[in-house]
């Protein structure tokens, strides 16, 4: 439309880049907050949490063809080393306690992707006697991913969305503060 929307500045797809200013050859300057966000969003180590058929797609995404590693996303087998929990499957009542405990064991900042219909809403098992109707009843969810199961491309899209979210983390508050001053 010709009018540039400022709010979409940080929603660009090159959110993985660190905003820098170049003064001299070989010297760049940036802000500490930007550096921290840049580091966080480019090394989203995820917890191996495949609990149903979505895990097959998660594995395919992590394997050579789709190669999750190129986004800096490496699986961790322990919550203590993980930044991101990809809940890939149906969560039932018995798993609910374990899921919350694993989430609490992750160091902050931590993010959650609800992968697939089951983790988002309960999916085809919605309302069943032993199924949690969406993992957001247990832990805060950052990205909901549709599909039953979602393809690896969809999971990569969700990861990129999360990266954008991390890239603009705290920026709204900054903007507001600047306008008041």
């Amino acid at each position: 439309m010709g009018i540039k929307d400022e709010s979409s500045d940080y929603l660009r797809k090159d959110a993985h880049r660190l905003p820098v200013a170049r003064f001299l050859p070989g010297v760049v300057a940036t802000r500490l907050e930007d550096l921290v966000r840049w580091g966080r969003r480019n090394s989203l180590w995820y917890l191996l949490y495949g609990i149903a058929c979505c895990a097959i797609e998660l594995m395919a995404t992590g394997a050579a063809h789709y190669d999750f590693d190129r986004f800096g996303m490496i699986f961790r087998a322990t919550p203590r080393q993980a930044d991101l929990m990809i809940v890939a499957g149906t969560v039932n009542q018995k798993m609910a306690d374990r899921l919350v405990r694993l989430y609490q064991q992750m160091a902050e900042p931590r993010w959650v992707i609800a992968m697939g219909a089951c983790a988002s809403t309960g999916g085809p098992y919605h309302g069943a006697y032993n199924v949690i109707n969406g993992v957001d009843r247990l832990v805060p969810v950052d990205v909901y991913l549709a599909g039953c199961p979602p393809r690896p491309e969809a999971l990569i899209d969700a990861a990129l969305l999360l990266m954008e979210k991390i890239a603009r983390e705290g920026k709204d508050a900054e903007r507001r503060a600047m306008r008041i001053e």
Partner: peptide, 8 residues
Amino acid sequence: PSNEPALG
């Protein structure tokens, strides 16, 4: 009716 997680 709510099907809320029991969580212990």
